[in-house]
Design a protein around this nucleic acid. Structure first.
Length: 748
DNA sequence: GTTTAGGGTTCG
């Protein structure tokens, strides 16, 4: 490549290892080890891979200067495997231009470094995974497709196995070793993005393999589109600038549509027997069991719906806060870890946040048990990435978990406080006293009125014998209720035609999205005065076209959390991911002259976890351009009601519909609860997508109607009910509905 | 100088 300074720079295309156009015959290839100081090398050439290059700079005499490092790809393990090349003058500029275009990452054009250092930051060259060659040491980027969190190997080091993919669709499995746990990449989930420097490439079993070499260093990034690009690393010094940021962002977008990344992680409340899953949790206690197994007591704030096993251990072997272990005894689960995981498990700190990968839930029953229980095992070995990872407090999943655990702990400690005050109070010396105290508590109603306190109670018998319509105040007990599965109580209600309908499931939405993706995007509807559009085609064989229209405000794009966007051709997963980042997402498709909403069986708007639907009967969808009127407002709030109104959509409201069977000793009647939010103090719109609220509602219902209680022991409810007539042909019936009533403050 | 593991679920 370098012959005489006057020779113009040419880019040679290498096909099947040979230059497409042959090199001049007088040139001879020279091996790096035959180069000698002080010798002329006229008519010789050296071939190598650009592993590093520096920005083109000007010397004090005005000449251009370019430095790059080439590595001999056939000889990279020897000590003299690379050569520094310094180029001056016109050729420096030409060479810099060729190098920039020949490799994966493009260099910045400015020379400023982010650090205070005076030195010029080097430009690393990155090899894409389809261009790896045996025996080379390279720098590369990849999306994590599979990984084994660091574990203790049988040798002297920790080991972590990581499989990467990149947009060339080539996979590379890397086996990384280090005596220092901290210097292995901090990968927490599939989809994370890594940058490896100085990884050695070898061929193993007919495939390329990566392995740590001297000076190996890594950066790891969250793979979520839109998340901050913050590297996780143990290196104190690393180069990371605009190009690197751009590369990570590009890989995120690529991964989002080309890699299947599993959805939200399983919680203890969602475990099923006989499966493997990853659990994100906090360590509450640990204990040695025997030589080959070790016990971890963990919780994630949710309750496992099955009885769980308790591993018997000596009390003195159990490490952890005794009080907390007792308080959380019904929420913690015992995880038994085996063999190679024991050493790591022993070293874990109580209180730390863990992700336990590929836990096995096993159904079993002990001899003295009637019902079976669930056991949690982390078997020996590292198949499927089985292992334990410690998550830092800065991890977004940990932040979310912490907030959740704090809310659970708060509720729990309040109960503990009231219990201990009862227990500590001298008046309650024995069980009978305690019971009578509890009974007195039960005299207090578990629901209260929000209005009409001056009205007197009416007995149910009197109400049943009266004509409708009328309103009453009652004091009654909740004998039973329907539906027992609380999520079934959520319906969609149209306030215009009064119809009720089931909340559609995700499959129907997926089907409608798939159907709409057939419609080709209309280029004329992109980049208008009120939105900017971005279109791309997926890399897979489907070649799907996706367009995102970002609605502007004052001709400017807003922050993602304030932005409404419309999407054409997206999948369920893509739409769902966008809702995590942007304020509002509206799925649309192109017509000849405007974008339009999809079928109203699909949500017309998604905000956070909430899907908003329109009434098919009462809506008259208007062209999408009607939205521009909201975009032009002073501060667009993107309220669903307002969006629905301008789009001609009759917004369906989420409601709880339940049937309460009430008794008071004089009679029994069924009263309907029709509630948006007031009764449970939980928005009906949020409950389907919020596990915590579902548990909260279940707890509320357990207080109103404690399972397994005798009639006498049920708590009292204070309610307002109204009677009304329903005539259906010849049939006439009186119905009752609860209103102006809410669950008591101490019950919520 | 340079092993370890080299992805693909279970003894308990």
């Amino acid at each position: 490549m370098l012959d005489k300074a006057a020779m113009p720079v040419q880019l040679l295309k290498i096909v099947n290892g040979k230059p497409e156009t042959p090199l001049p015959s007088h040139l001879q290839k020279e091996d790096l080890k035959h180069l000698q100081e002080g010798f002329g090398h006229t008519n010789k050439y050296f071939q190598g891979i650009v592993i590093l290059y520096y920005p083109l700079t000007k010397l004090s005499d005005g000449r251009d200067f370019f430095k790059l490092v080439l590595q001999d790809m056939n000889n990279s393990c020897s000590r003299t495997d690379s050569i520094n090349i310094l180029i001056y003058g016109k050729m420096a500029e030409d060479c810099a231009r060729v190098v920039r275009h020949g490799i994966y990452t493009k260099p910045r054009t400015t020379g400023a470094s982010e650090t205070a250092s005076m030195s010029v930051a080097p430009k690393y060259a990155y090899t894409s995974l389809n261009h790896l060659k045996d025996g080379t040491i390279v720098n590369l980027y990849g999306v994590v497709k599979f990984f084994k969190p660091p574990y203790v190997s049988k040798g002297t080091d920790y080991c972590s196995v990581v499989t990467l993919v990149d947009p060339s669709n080539v996979k590379l499995t890397c086996t990384l070793f280090s005596g220092n746990l901290d210097s292995l990449p901090k990968i927490y989930k599939v989809g994370d993005i890594v940058r490896f420097h100085r990884i050695k490439i070898r061929e193993y079993n007919g495939q390329m393999q990566g392995i740590t070499s001297v000076g190996f260093a890594s950066l790891t990034f969250d793979g979520t589109v839109g998340a901050p690009v913050v590297p996780r690393t143990s290196s104190k010094v690393y180069t990371f600038m605009d190009e690197e940021q751009k590369t990570v962002e590009e890989l995120r977008v690529w991964a989002a549509s080309n890699l299947s990344i599993s959805g939200p992680a399983a919680k203890l409340s969602g475990v099923q027997p006989m499966l493997f899953f990853d659990l994100t949790c906090q360590l509450v206690g640990k204990a040695k069991v025997d030589g080959s197994s070790f016990l971890l007591k963990v919780w994630d704030g949710t309750k496992c719906p099955y009885p769980t096993w308790k591993v018997p251990v000596e009390a003195r072997d159990l490490e952890g806060e005794k009080i907390l272990l007792h308080q959380l005894r019904n929420l913690t689960v015992d995880v038994l870890v085996y063999d190679n995981h024991v050493q790591l498990a022993k070293s874990l700190k109580i209180g730390s946040f863990l992700r336990i990968y590929s836990i096995h839930t096993k159904q079993a029953s002990a001899v003295d048990e009637d019902v079976s229980h669930i056991e949690f095992h982390l078997h020996g070995g590292t198949c499927y990435g089985r292992g334990i990872g410690v998550l830092p407090e800065s991890n977004p999943d940990v932040k979310e978990l912490k907030a959740f655990l704090e809310s659970v702990e708060l509720a729990d400690s309040q109960n503990m406080e009231s219990m201990s005050s009862v227990e500590l109070d001298g008046t309650f010396n024995n069980v009978t006293d305690l019971e009578s105290h509890l009974q007195r508590c039960q005299q207090l109603p578990v629901t209260v009125l929000t209005d009409h306190q001056d009205l007197n109670n009416t007995e149910l018998k009197t109400i049943l014998n009266s004509t409708a319509p009328q309103q009453y105040r009652i004091r009654a007990k909740l004998r039973t209720y329907k539906p027992q599965k609380l999520y079934q109580s959520i319906k969609l209600h149209c306030s215009k035609c009064k119809s009720l309908q089931e909340v559609p499931d995700g499959d129907g939405f997926d089907f409608i999205l798939q159907g709409s993706a057939i419609t080709a995007p209309n280029a004329e509807l992109q980049n208008t005065s009120w939105y900017d559009s971005v279109m791309w085609t997926t890399q897979d064989e489907k070649q799907r076209k996706i367009v995102i229209h970002f609605v502007k405000h004052d001709e400017m794009l807003q922050q993602p959390e304030d932005t409404l966007l419309m999407i054409e051709g997206g999948t369920l997963k893509e739409v769902w991911k966008l809702t995590k980042i942007f304020k509002c997402v509206i799925p649309v498709r192109s017509t000849e002259d405007d974008l339009e909403l999809l079928d109203l069986s699909a949500p017309f708007l998604l905000q956070g976890n909430i899907k908003y639907y329109g009434c098919k009967q009462c809506s008259t969808p208007k062209p999408i351009k009607s939205l521009s009127s909201i975009a032009a407002e002073q501060r667009p709030s993107w309220e669903p009601t307002e969006i629905a109104q301008v789009l001609g959509i009759e917004l369906l409201q989420y409601v709880f519909i339940m049937k309460f069977t009430l008794i008071d000793g004089t009679g029994a009647l069924n009263a309907y609860l029709f509630d948006y939010e007031k009764f449970f103090q939980i928005p009906a719109s949020e409950i389907l997508s919020n596990n915590f609220l579902q548990q909260k509602m279940q707890m509320t219902m357990n207080t109103l109607c404690p399972p397994g209680r005798k009639l006498d022991d049920l708590p009292w409810l204070e309610c307002f009910i109204k009677s009304y007539n329903v005539r259906d042909g010849m049939k006439h019936q009186v119905y009752y509905q609860i209103f102006d009533t809410t669950v008591a403050e101490d019950v919520v």
